[in-house]
């Protein structure tokens, strides 16, 4: 088993954190993991992406050219990575910021109004948590409880931990 995930969006959407939640969840489940950010002259509003590998064997290359899961939070990211997803793969689309539909029919697609859901729960900033919940449900190799534990561990003792949990549940229960 090797799960190759690319998370992409613009800076400030919590893309790199989204990748880290996956990694922490994977570690909790004793999987081998790597997390590789795109790095460069990136800033808020610019593009950001990270590559996450979860595997039951030591990860050789952390570099992903053909992901089996793509999570996109804005249109430029979808344009960039849509064609790269492996046949039979999964694309999670933030339909609040991406108006167009996926043009391929050989992949599974889930459209998620991540921003709307997050906003309804009180914090637009947790759109990435909604996506994480959806990822665990549809593409996850990690069980829900493990993923939620790992996530909450990151927010231990912090304000708003409760709304994080709600955002995760909302994403998971879509």
């Amino acid at each position: 088993m090797e799960s190759k995930i690319i998370c992409a969006g613009f800076g400030g959407q919590g893309i790199l954190s989204l990748g880290k939640f996956m990694v922490y969840a994977g570690m909790e489940q004793n999987l081998e993991v790597t997390w590789l950010p795109s790095y460069g002259p990136e800033m808020r509003g610019g593009t950001a992406n990270c590559s996450v590998v979860l595997s039951d064997k030591p990860v050789a290359s952390p570099l992903i050219t053909k992901p089996n899961i793509l999570i996109v939070m804005n249109t430029p990211s979808l344009d960039k990575f849509e064609s790269k997803v492996e046949k039979g793969g999964l694309i999670l689309v933030n339909s609040d910021l991406i108006e167009r539909k996926i043009s391929r029919d050989d992949v599974t697609v889930k459209y998620i109004s991540a921003n709307t859901i997050a906003l309804e729960l009180g914090s637009a900033r947790s759109a990435n948590i909604v996506m994480f919940g959806a990822y665990v449900k549809y593409g996850g190799v990690v069980s829900k409880d493990t993923a939620l534990d790992a996530l909450m561990h990151q927010f231990e003792g912090k304000k708003g931990a409760d709304s994080i949990k709600k955002a995760f549940e909302a994403g998971y229960n879509l």
Partner: peptide, 10 residues
């Protein structure tokens, strides 16, 4: 190299 510097692993 730059990749190793930025990569996260357990």
């Amino acid at each position: 190299d730059g990749m190793m510097g930025q990569l996260m692993e357990p």
